[in-house]
Design a protein around this nucleic acid. Structure first.
Lengths: 199, 199
DNA sequence: CCTACCGATCGGTAGG
DNA sequence: CCTACCGATCGGTAGG
């Protein structure tokens, strides 16, 4: 009955995208040639174009779906019921889960969006701002609740938190001793404390 | 008497390096051509090589002197007298000053070192680890003093702090309302609190 | 998916 | 600092 659960169908196109994520993440977009991708895919360069339109199409798709993963994980948490403290903790944990489930994709999302064409780049920037607003909302709620320090500069506080979170793909290794959940908990502990009153 | 104070002599070579910092920072090393640099310098591509050896030499010099700025600012603070709390505050402020005095150079130091040749890349990684150790030392001192939470994972705490600090060139603008000193103070306030005991 | 190829651009050099 | 150029590599295409 019904259709098969079409979870990650390993089409040639999706395989090429996975390879592009890996190579764009480690060598950068401009440092990766279509010949690099073709070689890793096991095909001659011209043959790639039976499956994809262009190099930039690969970047567009990786960055857009990558940002969407973050938005889909965090926006519902920001809008949920519950204390700002709990929501911030959940948002940080969710962010770290998304980063660590594909650190190379995260590197592309964080650093390679600059190489998108104008329209796609502006769309990516708009989504990143939407993402920041989810955190701004939680912080403002927490200040209104009286649990976060009301003397905080909310913008800088959010950029400090997101900076700490967005740096994780630079050092995270699945072979490390700390699991993504543990890392998320530790960072949430620290970053929540960073917003509290002294007293 | 004596020699003139040879502060930043504007040689052709140093001008080319400044241009390379700007372009490598905004377009990346692999996304910048020697023709881009020559055009910005106002010369034809081949003429650059009267002043420099190669494209990679530019990157080596930018990354090495860039890392040295951070080390020279923070290592003396880590080794100084005084409480861990004070030293961490000073180290964070010093880091932000170094980042903001040249955000583009900071972007190159943080993200373009991957494109160095093997030997230079390993040297850069070794220096980055030395930099992390300066912060590890301060945190361990603070835990020994009993002022930082002894249940902290020191490695992850340092990477959280450095992540927040290293993200600043992504958003800092000299035209913003907060000065580098103010940004450094705010981040130091947050990050110091993040290490404290709950009680 | 391969063969064969396109024009453009790359880092860099020789000679003046 | 320019003229003139090198071989290598780039993203991408036509035709099968």
């Amino acid at each position: 009955m019904g259709t098969a659960p079409a979870i990650s169908p390993s089409t040639p196109r999706s395989s090429i995208l996975d390879i592009a994520v890996r190579l764009f993440g480690s060598q950068g977009y401009t440092g990766t040639s279509m010949r690099d991708i073709a070689k890793a895919f096991g095909v001659l360069p011209g043959s790639l174009y039976a499956h994809i339109d262009s190099k930039e199409t690969l970047l567009v798709e990786i960055v857009e779906t990558g940002i969407n993963h973050f938005l889909e994980a965090v926006e519902p948490i920001a809008a949920a019921e519950g204390s700002a403290g709990m929501r911030l903790r959940d948002a940080i944990r969710a962010h770290i889960i998304v980063v660590t489930e594909n650190p190379e994709r995260s590197l592309v999302v964080f650093h390679q969006w600059r190489f998108l064409g104008d329209d796609y780049r502006e769309a990516a920037i708009a989504k990143r701002q939407r993402y920041e607003r989810a955190f701004i909302r939680i912080l403002e709620d927490g200040i209104a609740e009286g649990v976060f320090d009301q003397s905080l500069n909310v913008r800088i506080a959010v950029l400090t938190i997101l900076g700490a979170l967005n740096w994780t793909p630079e050092w995270y290794s699945p072979k490390g001793t700390a699991s993504p959940a543990e890392i998320g908990d530790m960072m949430a502990n620290m970053l929540l404390r960073s917003l509290m009153f002294k007293g």
